[in-house]
Nucleic acid binder design. Sequence first.
RNA 1: GGAAGCGUGGCCGAGCGGUUGAAGGCAACAGUCUUGAAAACUGUCAUGGGGCGACCCAUCAAGAGUUCGAAUCUCUUCGCUUCCUCCA
Length: 441
Amino acid sequence: MLDIKFIRENKEKIADAAEKKGIDLNLVELLELDKKRLSQLQYIEELQAEKNKLNELLPKADAEEKIVLLEQAKAVKEKLATAEPEFKIIKDAFDELMVKVPNIISGDTPIGKSDEDNVEIERNGEIPKFDFEIKDHVQLGKDLDILDLEKGTKVAGFRGYYMKNEGASLMMALMMYAMNKLIEKGYSPMIPPTLVKGSALFGTGYFKGKEYDSSVDEVYEVASGDKEADGKSSKEKKFLVGTAEPSLLAYYSDEVLKEEQLPIKIVGYSQCYRSEIGSYGKDTKGFYRVHEFMKVEQVVLMAANEEESIKMHDDMLEISKEVHAELGLPYRVLKICSGDMSAGKFRAYDIEAWMPSRDNFGETGSASNFLDWQARRLNVKYVDKNGDKKHVYMLNNTVLPSPRPFIAILENFQQADGSVLIPEVLRKYMPGGVGKITPKV
RNA sequence: GGAAGCGUGGCCGAGCGGUUGAAGGCAACAGUCUUGAAAACUGUCAUGGGGCGACCCAUCAAGAGUUCGAAUCUCUUCGCUUCCUCCA
Protein backbone atom coordinates (compact mmCIF):
# COMPACT_ATOMS: atom_id res chain seq x y z
CA MET A 1 0.00 0.00 0.00
CA LEU A 2 1.13 3.52 -0.71
CA ASP A 3 0.37 6.81 1.01
CA ILE A 4 -2.55 8.61 -0.63
CA LYS A 5 -0.55 11.85 -0.53
CA PHE A 6 2.28 10.16 -2.31
CA ILE A 7 -0.19 8.85 -4.90
CA ARG A 8 -1.65 12.33 -5.48
CA GLU A 9 1.79 13.79 -5.94
CA ASN A 10 3.25 10.98 -8.05
CA LYS A 11 0.41 10.07 -10.39
CA GLU A 12 2.64 9.64 -13.42
CA LYS A 13 5.23 7.53 -11.65
CA ILE A 14 2.57 5.19 -10.31
CA ALA A 15 0.63 4.94 -13.56
CA ASP A 16 3.93 4.14 -15.22
CA ALA A 17 4.79 1.44 -12.67
CA ALA A 18 1.33 -0.12 -13.01
CA GLU A 19 1.66 -0.24 -16.76
CA LYS A 20 5.14 -1.73 -16.64
CA LYS A 21 4.06 -4.32 -14.09
CA GLY A 22 1.05 -5.17 -16.22
CA ILE A 23 -1.37 -4.23 -13.46
CA ASP A 24 -4.75 -2.86 -14.36
CA LEU A 25 -5.21 0.25 -12.25
CA ASN A 26 -7.86 2.92 -12.58
CA LEU A 27 -5.93 5.81 -11.12
CA VAL A 28 -8.37 8.43 -12.39
CA GLU A 29 -11.20 6.72 -10.57
CA LEU A 30 -9.11 6.40 -7.43
CA LEU A 31 -8.28 10.10 -7.36
CA GLU A 32 -11.90 10.95 -8.08
CA LEU A 33 -12.99 8.82 -5.14
CA ASP A 34 -10.32 10.44 -3.03
CA LYS A 35 -11.82 13.86 -3.72
CA LYS A 36 -15.35 12.68 -2.98
CA ARG A 37 -14.16 10.95 0.14
CA LEU A 38 -12.47 14.09 1.43
CA SER A 39 -15.38 16.41 0.76
CA GLN A 40 -17.84 14.01 2.34
CA LEU A 41 -15.52 13.60 5.31
CA GLN A 42 -15.34 17.34 5.76
CA TYR A 43 -19.12 17.60 5.56
CA ILE A 44 -19.51 14.94 8.25
CA GLU A 45 -16.94 16.60 10.44
CA GLU A 46 -18.81 19.90 10.19
CA LEU A 47 -21.98 18.17 11.30
CA GLN A 48 -20.15 16.53 14.15
CA ALA A 49 -18.71 19.86 15.22
CA GLU A 50 -22.23 21.26 15.25
CA LYS A 51 -23.45 18.32 17.26
CA ASN A 52 -20.64 18.77 19.78
CA LYS A 53 -21.49 22.45 20.17
CA LEU A 54 -25.15 21.73 20.82
CA ASN A 55 -24.21 19.08 23.33
CA GLU A 56 -22.12 21.60 25.17
CA LEU A 57 -24.97 24.13 25.31
CA LEU A 58 -27.76 21.74 26.25
CA PRO A 59 -26.98 21.01 29.89
CA LYS A 60 -26.67 24.74 30.60
CA ALA A 61 -29.82 25.78 28.78
CA ASP A 62 -33.05 26.67 30.50
CA ALA A 63 -36.28 24.89 29.65
CA GLU A 64 -37.28 27.19 26.81
CA GLU A 65 -33.87 27.18 25.11
CA LYS A 66 -33.78 23.44 25.49
CA ILE A 67 -36.76 22.97 23.21
CA VAL A 68 -35.05 24.89 20.42
CA LEU A 69 -31.71 23.23 20.91
CA LEU A 70 -33.19 19.76 20.99
CA GLU A 71 -34.87 20.41 17.72
CA GLN A 72 -31.59 21.53 16.14
CA ALA A 73 -29.80 18.52 17.59
CA LYS A 74 -32.35 16.18 16.10
CA ALA A 75 -31.96 17.80 12.70
CA VAL A 76 -28.19 17.33 12.85
CA LYS A 77 -28.64 13.73 13.89
CA GLU A 78 -30.80 13.09 10.88
CA LYS A 79 -28.33 14.67 8.47
CA LEU A 80 -25.58 12.51 9.93
CA ALA A 81 -27.73 9.43 9.55
CA THR A 82 -27.81 9.91 5.78
CA ALA A 83 -24.29 11.31 5.36
CA GLU A 84 -22.49 8.50 7.18
CA PRO A 85 -23.69 5.56 5.09
CA GLU A 86 -22.91 7.56 1.97
CA PHE A 87 -19.42 8.09 3.23
CA LYS A 88 -19.00 4.41 3.98
CA ILE A 89 -19.84 3.47 0.40
CA ILE A 90 -17.28 5.91 -0.96
CA LYS A 91 -14.68 4.86 1.57
CA ASP A 92 -15.12 1.15 0.82
CA ALA A 93 -14.73 1.74 -2.91
CA PHE A 94 -11.71 3.91 -2.21
CA ASP A 95 -10.06 1.31 0.04
CA GLU A 96 -10.70 -1.40 -2.51
CA LEU A 97 -8.72 0.54 -5.10
CA MET A 98 -6.02 1.73 -2.69
CA VAL A 99 -5.05 -1.84 -1.97
CA LYS A 100 -4.38 -2.46 -5.62
CA VAL A 101 -2.02 0.44 -6.16
CA PRO A 102 1.36 -1.07 -6.97
CA ASN A 103 4.64 0.12 -5.60
CA ILE A 104 6.92 2.16 -7.84
CA ILE A 105 9.85 0.34 -9.39
CA SER A 106 13.52 1.09 -8.98
CA GLY A 107 15.36 2.91 -11.75
CA ASP A 108 17.49 -0.14 -12.54
CA THR A 109 14.58 -2.56 -12.88
CA PRO A 110 14.48 -3.97 -16.40
CA ILE A 111 11.24 -3.32 -18.25
CA GLY A 112 9.51 -6.44 -19.53
CA LYS A 113 6.32 -8.40 -19.72
CA SER A 114 7.10 -11.75 -18.13
CA ASP A 115 9.82 -13.90 -16.61
CA GLU A 116 11.25 -14.28 -20.10
CA ASP A 117 12.37 -10.67 -19.91
CA ASN A 118 14.32 -11.06 -16.69
CA VAL A 119 17.94 -10.11 -17.19
CA GLU A 120 20.81 -12.39 -16.28
CA ILE A 121 23.45 -10.27 -14.59
CA GLU A 122 25.85 -12.82 -13.28
CA ARG A 123 26.83 -16.46 -13.64
CA ASN A 124 29.20 -18.39 -11.42
CA GLY A 125 30.49 -21.91 -11.01
CA GLU A 126 31.22 -24.51 -13.61
CA ILE A 127 28.41 -26.42 -15.26
CA PRO A 128 29.40 -30.07 -14.82
CA LYS A 129 30.13 -32.33 -17.77
CA PHE A 130 29.40 -36.01 -17.35
CA ASP A 131 31.10 -38.87 -19.17
CA PHE A 132 28.29 -41.22 -18.25
CA GLU A 133 24.55 -41.36 -18.67
CA ILE A 134 23.13 -39.04 -16.04
CA LYS A 135 20.02 -39.70 -14.00
CA ASP A 136 17.50 -37.10 -12.93
CA HIS A 137 16.71 -36.52 -9.27
CA VAL A 138 13.62 -38.73 -9.47
CA GLN A 139 15.69 -41.72 -10.52
CA LEU A 140 18.51 -40.89 -8.13
CA GLY A 141 16.03 -40.48 -5.29
CA LYS A 142 14.62 -43.91 -6.05
CA ASP A 143 17.95 -45.69 -6.52
CA LEU A 144 19.39 -44.17 -3.36
CA ASP A 145 16.13 -44.77 -1.50
CA ILE A 146 16.03 -41.20 -0.23
CA LEU A 147 13.06 -39.66 -2.04
CA ASP A 148 9.74 -41.42 -2.56
CA LEU A 149 7.31 -39.58 -4.79
CA GLU A 150 4.95 -42.51 -5.35
CA LYS A 151 4.29 -43.03 -1.68
CA GLY A 152 4.03 -39.27 -1.35
CA THR A 153 1.27 -39.17 -3.92
CA LYS A 154 -0.48 -42.13 -2.34
CA VAL A 155 -0.63 -40.46 1.03
CA ALA A 156 -0.57 -36.72 0.36
CA GLY A 157 -1.92 -36.54 -3.18
CA PHE A 158 -0.51 -34.83 -6.24
CA ARG A 159 2.94 -33.28 -5.62
CA GLY A 160 3.31 -35.22 -2.38
CA TYR A 161 6.64 -36.73 -1.35
CA TYR A 162 8.57 -38.51 1.36
CA MET A 163 12.14 -37.74 2.23
CA LYS A 164 13.85 -40.87 3.52
CA ASN A 165 17.09 -42.02 5.05
CA GLU A 166 20.04 -39.85 3.99
CA GLY A 167 17.55 -37.74 2.06
CA ALA A 168 15.82 -36.72 5.27
CA SER A 169 19.20 -36.06 6.86
CA LEU A 170 20.42 -34.06 3.89
CA MET A 171 17.30 -31.91 4.00
CA MET A 172 17.81 -31.16 7.68
CA ALA A 173 21.49 -30.50 7.03
CA LEU A 174 20.60 -27.92 4.40
CA MET A 175 18.29 -26.16 6.81
CA MET A 176 20.77 -26.26 9.69
CA TYR A 177 23.54 -25.01 7.47
CA ALA A 178 21.44 -22.08 6.22
CA MET A 179 20.20 -21.19 9.70
CA ASN A 180 23.67 -21.19 11.21
CA LYS A 181 25.19 -19.28 8.36
CA LEU A 182 22.73 -16.42 8.90
CA ILE A 183 23.06 -16.49 12.67
CA GLU A 184 26.81 -16.10 12.16
CA LYS A 185 26.06 -13.09 9.99
CA GLY A 186 24.17 -11.42 12.80
CA TYR A 187 20.62 -12.49 12.03
CA SER A 188 18.39 -13.50 14.93
CA PRO A 189 16.88 -16.94 14.48
CA MET A 190 13.13 -17.45 14.73
CA ILE A 191 10.70 -20.27 14.19
CA PRO A 192 7.49 -18.45 13.39
CA PRO A 193 3.92 -19.75 13.21
CA THR A 194 2.83 -21.19 9.88
CA LEU A 195 -0.90 -21.22 10.63
CA VAL A 196 -1.81 -17.54 10.68
CA LYS A 197 -4.63 -15.02 10.49
CA GLY A 198 -5.39 -13.27 7.24
CA SER A 199 -3.90 -9.99 8.41
CA ALA A 200 -0.32 -11.27 8.19
CA LEU A 201 -0.84 -12.39 4.60
CA PHE A 202 -2.74 -9.29 3.57
CA GLY A 203 -0.10 -7.12 5.22
CA THR A 204 2.75 -8.65 3.30
CA GLY A 205 0.90 -8.60 0.00
CA TYR A 206 0.03 -12.26 -0.35
CA PHE A 207 -3.64 -11.42 -0.87
CA LYS A 208 -4.08 -9.58 -4.12
CA GLY A 209 -7.20 -7.77 -2.90
CA LYS A 210 -8.60 -6.76 0.46
CA GLU A 211 -9.86 -10.27 1.16
CA TYR A 212 -8.56 -13.75 0.46
CA ASP A 213 -9.59 -15.06 -2.94
CA SER A 214 -8.95 -18.76 -3.42
CA SER A 215 -9.05 -18.45 -7.20
CA VAL A 216 -6.01 -16.18 -7.40
CA ASP A 217 -4.20 -16.28 -4.07
CA GLU A 218 -1.65 -19.07 -3.80
CA VAL A 219 -2.50 -19.69 -0.19
CA TYR A 220 -4.29 -22.50 1.60
CA GLU A 221 -7.21 -21.55 3.75
CA VAL A 222 -7.83 -23.93 6.61
CA ALA A 223 -11.43 -25.09 6.46
CA SER A 224 -12.08 -25.67 10.13
CA GLY A 225 -11.60 -22.93 12.68
CA ASP A 226 -9.64 -23.23 15.90
CA LYS A 227 -11.39 -24.82 18.81
CA GLU A 228 -11.99 -22.22 21.45
CA ALA A 229 -11.75 -22.94 25.16
CA ASP A 230 -15.52 -23.36 25.29
CA GLY A 231 -15.38 -25.99 22.57
CA LYS A 232 -16.96 -23.82 19.90
CA SER A 233 -15.26 -23.23 16.60
CA SER A 234 -13.63 -19.85 16.06
CA LYS A 235 -14.95 -17.81 13.16
CA GLU A 236 -11.59 -16.23 12.47
CA LYS A 237 -10.18 -17.63 9.25
CA LYS A 238 -6.79 -19.24 9.32
CA PHE A 239 -4.30 -19.74 6.54
CA LEU A 240 -1.10 -21.66 5.93
CA VAL A 241 1.85 -19.47 5.02
CA GLY A 242 3.76 -20.02 1.80
CA THR A 243 6.95 -18.68 3.38
CA ALA A 244 8.10 -17.50 6.80
CA GLU A 245 8.14 -13.90 5.55
CA PRO A 246 4.55 -12.96 6.52
CA SER A 247 4.86 -14.33 10.04
CA LEU A 248 8.29 -12.84 10.56
CA LEU A 249 7.24 -9.37 9.42
CA ALA A 250 3.83 -9.39 11.08
CA TYR A 251 5.64 -9.93 14.37
CA TYR A 252 6.11 -6.15 14.33
CA SER A 253 2.65 -5.18 13.05
CA ASP A 254 1.06 -2.18 14.74
CA GLU A 255 4.32 -1.36 16.46
CA VAL A 256 6.38 1.78 16.61
CA LEU A 257 10.07 1.00 16.72
CA LYS A 258 12.98 3.25 17.58
CA GLU A 259 15.53 4.10 14.92
CA GLU A 260 18.31 2.72 17.16
CA GLN A 261 16.66 -0.71 16.95
CA LEU A 262 17.06 -0.74 13.19
CA PRO A 263 17.99 -2.57 11.13
CA ILE A 264 16.25 -5.62 12.53
CA LYS A 265 17.60 -8.75 10.86
CA ILE A 266 15.84 -12.06 11.26
CA VAL A 267 16.37 -15.50 9.87
CA GLY A 268 13.36 -17.78 10.05
CA TYR A 269 12.83 -21.45 9.49
CA SER A 270 9.41 -22.72 8.54
CA GLN A 271 7.38 -25.24 6.69
CA CYS A 272 5.88 -23.57 3.61
CA TYR A 273 2.58 -24.40 1.95
CA ARG A 274 1.64 -23.45 -1.58
CA SER A 275 -1.56 -24.25 -3.38
CA GLU A 276 0.13 -23.62 -6.76
CA ILE A 277 -3.22 -22.43 -7.99
CA GLY A 278 -1.60 -20.40 -10.76
CA SER A 279 0.72 -23.20 -11.88
CA TYR A 280 -1.60 -25.91 -13.21
CA GLY A 281 0.31 -28.26 -15.42
CA LYS A 282 3.66 -26.65 -14.65
CA ASP A 283 6.56 -28.82 -13.53
CA THR A 284 4.25 -31.73 -12.89
CA LYS A 285 7.06 -34.27 -12.70
CA GLY A 286 9.43 -34.71 -9.85
CA PHE A 287 10.30 -32.64 -6.88
CA TYR A 288 10.62 -29.20 -8.40
CA ARG A 289 7.17 -27.83 -7.58
CA VAL A 290 5.58 -29.21 -4.46
CA HIS A 291 2.81 -28.14 -2.10
CA GLU A 292 4.85 -28.13 1.06
CA PHE A 293 8.49 -27.79 1.89
CA MET A 294 10.91 -26.38 4.42
CA LYS A 295 12.67 -23.10 3.93
CA VAL A 296 15.07 -20.73 5.61
CA GLU A 297 14.16 -17.14 4.93
CA GLN A 298 15.72 -13.85 5.92
CA VAL A 299 13.91 -10.55 6.47
CA VAL A 300 15.16 -7.07 7.28
CA LEU A 301 13.31 -4.08 8.71
CA MET A 302 15.27 -0.89 8.26
CA ALA A 303 15.06 2.90 8.28
CA ALA A 304 13.39 4.53 5.30
CA ASN A 305 16.30 5.32 3.05
CA GLU A 306 16.06 4.19 -0.53
CA GLU A 307 19.77 4.19 -1.24
CA GLU A 308 20.57 2.25 1.92
CA SER A 309 17.81 -0.22 1.18
CA ILE A 310 19.28 -0.94 -2.23
CA LYS A 311 22.62 -1.64 -0.56
CA MET A 312 20.92 -3.91 1.95
CA HIS A 313 19.09 -5.69 -0.85
CA ASP A 314 22.38 -6.33 -2.62
CA ASP A 315 23.96 -7.55 0.62
CA MET A 316 21.15 -10.03 1.02
CA LEU A 317 21.70 -11.28 -2.49
CA GLU A 318 25.41 -11.71 -1.64
CA ILE A 319 24.43 -14.12 1.11
CA SER A 320 22.47 -16.25 -1.35
CA LYS A 321 25.42 -16.24 -3.73
CA GLU A 322 27.74 -17.28 -0.93
CA VAL A 323 25.41 -20.13 0.00
CA HIS A 324 25.27 -21.40 -3.58
CA ALA A 325 29.02 -21.09 -3.93
CA GLU A 326 29.68 -22.95 -0.69
CA LEU A 327 27.34 -25.72 -1.73
CA GLY A 328 29.30 -25.91 -4.97
CA LEU A 329 26.27 -25.26 -7.14
CA PRO A 330 26.68 -23.43 -10.44
CA TYR A 331 24.25 -20.54 -10.37
CA ARG A 332 23.13 -17.38 -12.07
CA VAL A 333 21.51 -14.21 -10.85
CA LEU A 334 18.59 -12.55 -12.60
CA LYS A 335 17.34 -9.07 -12.23
CA ILE A 336 13.57 -9.37 -12.20
CA CYS A 337 11.78 -7.30 -14.82
CA SER A 338 8.79 -5.08 -14.14
CA GLY A 339 6.26 -7.52 -15.58
CA ASP A 340 7.44 -10.40 -13.40
CA MET A 341 7.30 -8.37 -10.19
CA SER A 342 4.35 -8.51 -7.86
CA ALA A 343 2.51 -5.29 -7.04
CA GLY A 344 4.38 -4.46 -3.87
CA LYS A 345 7.91 -4.90 -5.07
CA PHE A 346 10.31 -2.08 -5.77
CA ARG A 347 13.27 -4.20 -6.83
CA ALA A 348 13.90 -7.93 -7.03
CA TYR A 349 16.46 -10.60 -7.87
CA ASP A 350 16.15 -14.32 -8.44
CA ILE A 351 18.96 -16.75 -8.01
CA GLU A 352 18.92 -20.00 -9.94
CA ALA A 353 20.99 -23.14 -9.51
CA TRP A 354 22.02 -25.41 -12.35
CA MET A 355 19.90 -28.54 -12.65
CA PRO A 356 21.33 -31.04 -15.14
CA SER A 357 18.07 -32.90 -15.79
CA ARG A 358 16.39 -29.65 -16.82
CA ASP A 359 19.51 -28.80 -18.79
CA ASN A 360 18.90 -25.37 -17.40
CA PHE A 361 18.92 -23.26 -14.27
CA GLY A 362 16.01 -23.53 -11.86
CA GLU A 363 14.93 -20.93 -9.33
CA THR A 364 16.31 -21.52 -5.86
CA GLY A 365 15.86 -18.11 -4.31
CA SER A 366 14.39 -14.67 -4.59
CA ALA A 367 15.39 -11.41 -2.92
CA SER A 368 12.96 -8.50 -2.79
CA ASN A 369 12.91 -4.92 -1.64
CA PHE A 370 9.43 -3.56 -0.87
CA LEU A 371 10.43 -0.18 0.58
CA ASP A 372 7.52 0.80 2.86
CA TRP A 373 4.76 -0.89 0.84
CA GLN A 374 4.39 -3.81 3.27
CA ALA A 375 5.03 -1.69 6.36
CA ARG A 376 2.01 0.48 5.51
CA ARG A 377 -0.26 -2.54 5.32
CA LEU A 378 1.21 -4.06 8.47
CA ASN A 379 1.41 -0.66 10.19
CA VAL A 380 5.02 -0.85 11.27
CA LYS A 381 6.62 2.49 12.01
CA TYR A 382 9.69 3.87 13.67
CA VAL A 383 10.61 7.17 15.25
CA ASP A 384 13.57 8.72 13.49
CA LYS A 385 16.27 10.92 15.00
CA ASN A 386 14.12 14.05 14.55
CA GLY A 387 11.22 12.43 16.37
CA ASP A 388 9.23 11.96 13.17
CA LYS A 389 7.31 8.79 12.59
CA LYS A 390 7.95 6.89 9.41
CA HIS A 391 7.11 3.49 8.04
CA VAL A 392 10.04 1.08 8.03
CA TYR A 393 11.40 -0.44 4.86
CA MET A 394 11.07 -4.20 4.53
CA LEU A 395 13.17 -6.63 2.53
CA ASN A 396 13.23 -10.37 2.29
CA ASN A 397 15.30 -13.10 0.73
CA THR A 398 15.30 -16.85 0.46
CA VAL A 399 18.37 -18.24 2.10
CA LEU A 400 17.56 -21.83 1.18
CA PRO A 401 14.41 -23.64 0.22
CA SER A 402 14.59 -27.40 0.64
CA PRO A 403 13.51 -29.27 -2.50
CA ARG A 404 15.29 -27.39 -5.25
CA PRO A 405 18.79 -27.24 -3.79
CA PHE A 406 18.23 -30.91 -3.02
CA ILE A 407 17.55 -31.55 -6.71
CA ALA A 408 20.62 -29.55 -7.69
CA ILE A 409 22.83 -31.41 -5.24
CA LEU A 410 21.67 -34.86 -6.35
CA GLU A 411 21.98 -34.12 -10.03
CA ASN A 412 25.19 -32.09 -10.04
CA PHE A 413 27.12 -34.29 -7.67
CA GLN A 414 26.11 -37.70 -9.01
CA GLN A 415 28.93 -40.10 -9.76
CA ALA A 416 29.38 -42.77 -12.41
CA ASP A 417 28.74 -45.48 -9.81
CA GLY A 418 25.33 -43.99 -9.03
CA SER A 419 26.38 -42.41 -5.75
CA VAL A 420 26.04 -38.75 -4.84
CA LEU A 421 28.63 -36.65 -3.03
CA ILE A 422 27.44 -34.39 -0.26
CA PRO A 423 28.82 -30.84 -0.25
CA GLU A 424 31.62 -30.37 2.27
CA VAL A 425 29.76 -27.64 4.22
CA LEU A 426 26.82 -29.95 4.89
CA ARG A 427 28.79 -32.95 6.13
CA LYS A 428 29.10 -31.77 9.70
CA TYR A 429 25.31 -31.77 9.88
CA MET A 430 25.03 -35.33 8.50
CA PRO A 431 24.91 -38.26 10.92
CA GLY A 432 28.43 -39.59 11.21
CA GLY A 433 29.65 -36.80 8.95
CA VAL A 434 28.85 -38.96 5.96
CA GLY A 435 30.09 -37.49 2.67
CA LYS A 436 28.42 -39.70 0.14
CA ILE A 437 25.10 -41.40 -0.47
CA THR A 438 25.36 -44.76 -2.19
CA PRO A 439 22.75 -46.87 -3.98
CA LYS A 440 21.06 -49.38 -1.74
CA VAL A 441 20.87 -52.32 -4.17
C1' G B 1 -17.83 -29.33 33.06
C1' G B 2 -19.45 -25.35 36.94
C1' A B 3 -18.98 -20.05 38.83
C1' A B 4 -17.34 -15.01 39.01
C1' G B 5 -14.92 -11.06 37.09
C1' C B 6 -12.00 -7.76 33.86
C1' G B 7 -10.43 -5.02 29.15
C1' U B 8 -9.35 3.21 29.96
C1' G B 9 -3.04 6.89 27.47
C1' G B 10 4.23 3.85 27.62
C1' C B 11 2.69 1.46 32.51
C1' C B 12 -0.53 1.59 37.09
C1' G B 13 -5.22 3.54 37.98
C1' A B 14 -9.92 6.98 38.77
C1' G B 15 -14.38 7.89 36.21
C1' C B 16 -20.07 4.33 35.63
C1' G B 17 -25.32 9.42 30.90
C1' G B 18 -23.61 15.98 29.69
C1' U B 19 -17.22 21.61 29.97
C1' U B 20 -13.74 13.96 30.64
C1' G B 21 -9.31 13.35 25.44
C1' A B 22 -10.10 11.56 30.02
C1' A B 23 -8.23 12.95 37.67
C1' G B 24 -4.02 11.01 40.34
C1' G B 25 0.55 8.30 40.32
C1' C B 26 4.84 6.04 37.89
C1' A B 27 8.02 6.19 33.83
C1' A B 28 10.08 9.44 29.99
C1' C B 29 11.88 14.21 28.12
C1' A B 30 13.45 19.51 28.85
C1' G B 31 14.84 23.10 32.47
C1' U B 32 16.15 25.29 37.59
C1' C B 33 19.48 24.04 41.53
C1' U B 34 24.46 21.28 41.81
C1' U B 35 31.64 20.61 40.51
C1' G B 36 28.74 16.08 38.86
C1' A B 37 24.83 12.87 40.24
C1' A B 38 20.65 12.07 43.37
C1' A B 39 16.73 14.64 45.70
C1' A B 40 13.49 18.75 45.22
C1' C B 41 10.98 22.14 42.13
C1' U B 42 8.97 23.95 37.13
C1' G B 43 7.35 22.65 32.43
C1' U B 44 6.33 19.04 28.40
C1' C B 45 4.36 14.36 27.64
C1' A B 46 -1.65 9.43 23.51
C1' U B 47 -2.75 8.29 18.41
C1' G B 48 -4.88 8.93 13.63
C1' G B 49 -7.25 12.25 10.07
C1' G B 50 -8.62 17.24 7.85
C1' G B 51 -7.26 22.58 7.11
C1' C B 52 -2.23 27.71 4.87
C1' G B 53 -3.72 28.70 9.71
C1' A B 54 -6.72 30.16 14.55
C1' C B 55 -8.46 25.38 14.84
C1' C B 56 -11.77 21.14 13.73
C1' C B 57 -13.01 15.72 13.75
C1' A B 58 -12.38 10.65 15.46
C1' U B 59 -10.55 7.11 19.06
C1' C B 60 -11.53 4.62 26.62
C1' A B 61 -10.74 -3.91 23.23
C1' A B 62 -13.87 -4.28 18.29
C1' G B 63 -18.72 -3.84 16.06
C1' A B 64 -23.92 -2.68 16.38
C1' G B 65 -27.82 -0.26 19.19
C1' U B 66 -30.58 3.20 22.83
C1' U B 67 -30.18 8.78 23.45
C1' C B 68 -30.34 15.55 21.68
C1' G B 69 -25.75 13.57 24.11
C1' A B 70 -22.13 7.20 25.67
C1' A B 71 -15.63 5.58 28.48
C1' U B 72 -20.34 5.34 31.37
C1' C B 73 -26.70 1.88 29.45
C1' U B 74 -28.08 -2.70 25.99
C1' C B 75 -26.59 -6.58 22.53
C1' U B 76 -22.80 -9.26 19.73
C1' U B 77 -17.78 -10.49 18.92
C1' C B 78 -12.71 -10.76 20.43
C1' G B 79 -9.07 -11.02 24.27
C1' C B 80 -7.74 -11.92 29.39
C1' U B 81 -8.03 -13.29 34.73
C1' U B 82 -9.59 -15.89 39.12
C1' C B 83 -11.98 -19.94 41.78
C1' C B 84 -14.01 -24.96 41.79
C1' U B 85 -14.07 -29.56 38.91
C1' C B 86 -11.57 -32.75 35.50
C1' C B 87 -7.02 -34.38 33.23
C1' A B 88 -1.73 -34.78 33.67
